[in-house]
Every structure is written in C-alpha cells, then in structure tokens.
Amino acid sequence: MTAKSLSLQDAAQDKAMSGSRSNPNSAFRRLLAIIRELLGNPSSGFGLVVITILVLTAIVAPLIAPYDPNVINLGNTLKPPSIEHWFGTDELGRDIMSRIIYGTRISLTIITIVSVIVGPIGLLVGTTAGYFGGWYDTIMMRITDIFLSFPSLILSLAFVAALGAGLENAIIAIGLTTWPPIARLARAETLTFRGADYISASRMQGASALRIIIKSIMPMCLPSVLVRITLSMATVILTAAGLGFLGLGAQPPLPEWGAMIATGRRYMLDNWWLVAFPGGAILLVSLAFNLLGDGLRDALDPKQR
C-alpha cells in the first residue's frame, strides 16, 4: 500500500471517528451511553431513578424535611398519617417522614463507606490470588471460604459484639462480611485472562507483577466487580437495617430505618405507620439497587451480550 493511499484511508477514518478521539470526552460519552441504556430498560431505569432520588434527598434533606427529625413533641404522639404529618408521628411525637428523609443520609453513608472499603480489598485479594496462584492462592481462598461459610448477618453480629455497638462499628463489620464474594469473582475473572497474550507481552516488556495486576488485570475485572458491588448493596442495606433492628447498629436518636422499625415494633399492632413506612423505604432502596445491578450487568459485562 502506498503512503498516499494510507494517509487517505486515515483521513477517512479520522472523519468517521472524530469526537471519540480525545480520552476524557470518550469516557464521558461512554458514561452517557450506559445511562441511556439503563434508562431504556424499565426495571433498571426504575432502579436508577430511585437511587438518584435517594442521593438528592440525602443532599437536600434539611430543605425538604418538614420537621426536625429529633424534636420530641409529647403532645402529639402516635398520630396517624394526616395533612400535617404525611407519614404520621412516632411514640415521642417525631415526624416519621422527616426521620425517613434524614435516614437516607445514614443509609448512603453506610453504602458509600462499605463500597469504598470492600471494592479495593476484594479486587486486591482476588487479582493477586488469581495471578500468583500456588500457595498464596490457596491461603487467600481458604480465608475467603471461612468468611463465606457464615451467614453475613451472623458474622456482622459477631464483629459488632466484639467491636461494640454503634454505626461506625456496624459499617466495619458489614465491610468485613461483604468482600469475600468480590474477591472470589475477581479471582475467577483473573484466571480467565492471566494466560492471555497481552499479559505475556507485558511480562516480556519487563513489567513487574504489581504493574501487570494494576494496569492490565484490574481494568478487566472492574466492570463485573462494579456490578457485583451494586448487587451486594441491597444486602448491605438489609444487614445494616438488621443490625439497627437488633440494637447493634445506629443508636436510638439517629433516624436509621432499621432502628426505627425496632422501636416501632412495640406499637405496631395499633399504629401500623411506625413500621410500614421505614420498612417500605428499606424495601424500595434495596429493590432499586438489585434492579440497577442487573441493568449494569447487561450494560457493562461484555460476556452477557
């Protein structure tokens, strides 16, 4: 092929792909394409919308909450839903809607911190185990097996019991129980392409094991790990609510949804709204994360196509 025809061909291809050339721009376009695909599917669209509303609610909670969530009004206890109190009031006269709105902040804090802890740990354990293999892999996977062999709520309970009750400890305990499935997944993914030619090429160019893991292997594992984290967020919310309900998570004045159900339980038979609304919020959010995770899997994981 002559130089001229090459450059002509190039010019044509450049024209066809202009716009997707520069890096940040193409990443942004890709993000937009993913969001569009998520919104195109009703169930994942629902998940995305609910989670967006959740995040916005948490940010502007003081602006949209009609009452202070912690102000006690003993003259106005256990009122059913009405125009003034849309979701009613609890046994101390606090507005339940305001408490649920402020509760989004706690739930989001838990979710964010847990995923920030769990993602890197799971990814690191899984990719190193898959890449190095041998005795290191055996040790790491047996440790993961031990964590996996307990029901996550029971294991979190044990950790919280050891660390002491409270929101921070609950977050740590949940983090410790959520990483094993992610490590397993990252290892399985790593095994599928650790023998690939591009890894061999990278090794021949003198890349250290750490460099190969971070630069070549982790980017390949990231989509499925992201999907897995989103899906496990539903479990995280349920576990956090469970710990709150058992009195080991967020402590009473905090408007945590699980703790609200725990205190409302005593009045549940006569005053259904104490339990129904926080329960509905938990249901809605964990359902939304599940649906979003399913949608993300379709959008991100090339193997599902």
Binding site: A196, D197, Y198, A201, S216, P219, M220
Partner: peptide
C-alpha cells in the same frame, strides 16, 4: 493472534 495480544482497554 493480533486480537489477543493487545490489551482491549488500553
């Protein structure tokens, strides 16, 4: 295999 020797995300 030129399809397997270049990292797909690089």
């Amino acid at each position: 295999d030129p399809y397997g020797s270049l990292h797909p995300r690089q």
